[in-house]
Computed example of a mutant assay.
Amino acid sequence: MLATAVDALPTGESLLYEPKWDGFRCLAETGPVRMSSKSDKPLNQKFPEIADALAALPEGLLLDGEIIRWAEDGRLDFQALLRRNSASVRRARALSRSEPCHLVVFDLLRVGGRDLMGRALSHRRGELERLMGLVEQPSPLTLGWQTDNPEVAMQWWEDMPAVGVEGVMIKDGRRSYRPGSRGWRKWKHRVTTEAIVGGVVGHARAPRALILGRVDSVTGELRVAGRTTDLSPEQSEELAPHMVKTDDHPWPRTLAATWGSEGRQHYTQVEPHVVVEVSPDSAEVAGRWRHVVRYVRVRPDLTPEDVPKDLGTET
């Protein structure tokens, strides 16, 4: 089941709130254990510590959750998940000891072979809480937080981006589980900040998206920081006069992309002197904003020296 983005926290009867964890979505079955991604990619061998914990649960379960990694600094570490995802079976087993991960379980879709998808979320949650009460802690399996108090949800939304939580999920406790539908809502934590335009997708005179840069506070070099969502025709027209194509650029001709399913990002290099205001969420990986960011406006009143360094949001 999927979610639609909203711009504010909804309130109302029967609404339940959960943190929006930044990790790998996972469906997990028992008897035998089978972990799979949203695209049905098997995950058992990538996260053996979680698979081993699932094997101790009763047979006939189907759980929905998010695989996360808490780093030693108390933040969510998405980079560790990427390392695990590309590791060999032997390497993944070693990483399970040095960088253990958790499955945050937030829904129960089958128990004892009995399908619960048609039951209300509040009913499924009650059964899930009883099941997770059997799990001896500490364990790679943990019950996801949930509240019906919008004030608590607002506190999560305000405080938890500091540890890498993306926002808040909003679900109706009366609703069934409908695979593939966007019956949930998500309120992601976004801020506006500035970035330097280092390239454009498309032509400099008709940019389709922007490749953004930030100066590395250690080396002083301009590094790739992210990519914007596709621009509207009006935004493209607004930006085109500011874009100057160049062959003298610090970045390679193609970039290893971390946005969506693209393998490499082809782009046009432009002189890195234009500053734009953008709205990223809190997810980061390898020194970049992990998700595409929303373009807000061009900032001709600012110079690259005015832009925060690294991925900071304030100078």
Rank of each mutant, 00 (worst) to 15 (best):
T315I: 10
R75F: 12
V89H: 06
P138F: 01
F24G: 01
P250D: 11
S232A: 14
D172F: 08
D230Y: 07
A8R: 14
P272Q: 08
A240E: 07
L81D: 10
V200I: 13
V293T: 15
R299H: 13
L108Y: 02
W21E: 00
L81V: 12
L231K: 00
S96Y: 12
K188I: 05
D247N: 09
R34G: 04
S37Y: 04
P32R: 00
E66V: 14
S96G: 15
L62F: 06
E238P: 05
A283R: 09
G220K: 00
W21A: 07
Q269L: 10
R125N: 06
D281P: 12
K186A: 06
P304G: 11
R97L: 15
G126W: 09
H266I: 13
P42N: 12
E166K: 01
V163W: 00
K41W: 01
A51N: 03
R227D: 05
D230K: 00
E66D: 13
L62W: 02
G74N: 09
L222H: 05
K46W: 01
V298A: 15
S88M: 12
V278R: 07
M154G: 14
S122I: 00
D64R: 03
W156K: 00
A204C: 13
A55L: 03
Y295P: 12
W145F: 08
S181V: 03
S236K: 00
L302R: 01
R175A: 05
A8T: 13
P48Y: 12
T228V: 09
D77Q: 08
K20S: 03
G263L: 07
I170G: 05
E29V: 02
E166H: 07
L210V: 05
R299G: 13
A71E: 09
S37C: 01
S36P: 01
P32T: 04
E99M: 15
R175Y: 04
P280Y: 04
R264Q: 04
H249E: 07
G112E: 11
G260Q: 07
P150R: 00
V218G: 06
L311N: 10
S86R: 15
V191D: 15
T258P: 12
W184A: 01
P304D: 03
P138D: 04
A94T: 11
S39M: 01
L116T: 07
K38E: 03
G213Y: 05
S139T: 12
S282T: 11
R84C: 09
V201Y: 08
H249C: 05
T147K: 05
K46I: 03
R83W: 14
D281Y: 06
D7K: 11
R125H: 13
Q137R: 02
S181E: 06
E99G: 15
I67P: 10
R299V: 14
P42A: 07
E305G: 02
I68C: 14
L131K: 09
A94F: 15
K245C: 13
P250W: 13
L143Q: 03
G118V: 01
A153F: 12
L109Q: 06
T303Q: 11
L134F: 05
R178T: 13
R288G: 15
G126A: 07
V105Y: 10
S98E: 14
E221W: 01
